[in-house]
């Protein structure tokens, strides 16, 4: 296409400006605490703040829990439906992508209204948040497990293992999971990236996650907020980078909006 050679550079330059300028501005802002401060003042104040580390720990803990919950509920169902109960495949997929139609704020509202007024352990807010994060992880993990199963011909692998005299646990732990690992890593890192910056649900549940800490910082210390934004971008960049390295070319949808 001859035309595309003419306007492509224009599109490229405009896009470059739109996507890079906010990052440059943030970086610039983060090192301008004031004339009496060194340029790293904002960063050192964040890194020496106990709230920063405790919020990061909480988010990390929540992310790990969500991934574990997600794997435990998604992997067996997807695997078994794929292998032995194809009629249930549609249902597993349907349930797994349902969280897409329930916005996070709506999910929290539902959880709080249902369990908030005492329902044993379910009324505990950390547990509610963990469950909510588990729900958000479902579509991403389903997609990566499903892609993984499709790409590795799991049926033949399972049948080969069984015909060689393997037991079911051995099939799962020595044949299926090792081969699914790459696909699972992709989904796992994406869920991690989403949860590390999540704000809406944790703030509604009154838990001081990393996202909540960022917002509170932003309300009082603008330069530190800019520094935090860059730190969190670096975190997402790292996680997505790892994800794309292990999981080439998979489309990702969503984010901690």
């Amino acid at each position: 296409m001859k035309g595309s050679r003419v306007w492509s550079p224009i599109v490229g330059v405009v896009a470059f400006l739109y996507f890079v300028v906010p990052l440059v501005a943030t970086a610039e802002f983060s090192v301008q605490e004031g004339p009496s401060h060194p340029f790293w003042a904002a960063y050192s104040s964040i890194l020496s703040s106990p709230q920063f580390w405790s919020s990061l720990r909480l988010s990390l803990f929540m992310a790990v829990s969500a991934v574990v919950i997600g794997l435990v509920i998604i992997v067996p169902a997807t695997y078994w439906a794929f292998l032995r109960a194809p009629r249930l495949q549609t249902w597993v997929e349907f349930i797994s992508i349902m969280p897409f139609v329930v916005p996070p704020i709506v999910l929290v509202l539902g959880l709080v209204h249902l369990y908030g007024n005492g329902f044993g352990p379910l009324s505990s807010r950390p547990i509610m948040l963990m469950a909510a994060y588990g729900v958000i992880s479902m579509p991403y993990l389903f997609r990566s497990v499903n892609n993984g199963l499709r790409s590795m011909d799991v049926r033949s692998l399972t049948e080969a293992a069984l015909s060689l005299g393997s037991s079911w646990p051995r099939v799962l732990f020595q044949v299926v999971f090792p081969n699914l690992r790459t696909a699972l890593l992709g989904g796992t890192f994406l869920v991690f990236a989403l949860i590390m910056g999540e704000y809406a649900m944790s703030s509604m549940l009154g838990l001081n996650t990393f996202g909540v800490y960022m917002l509170l910082t932003g309300e009082t210390r603008a330069h530190a907020a800019a520094a935090l934004a860059l730190i969190s971008l670096a975190l997402v960049w790292f996680l997505v980078g790892v994800m794309q390295a292990v999981n080439r070319g998979n489309v990702t949808i969503g984010g901690a909006r």
Binding site: P22, G197, Y199, V240, G241, M243, A256
Partner: peptide
């Protein structure tokens, strides 16, 4: 991939 997941609080700051 990064930018489509760069949202929420840090995006607002940026």
């Amino acid at each position: 991939g990064v930018a489509s997941n760069f949202a929420g609080i840090p995006l607002a700051f940026a």
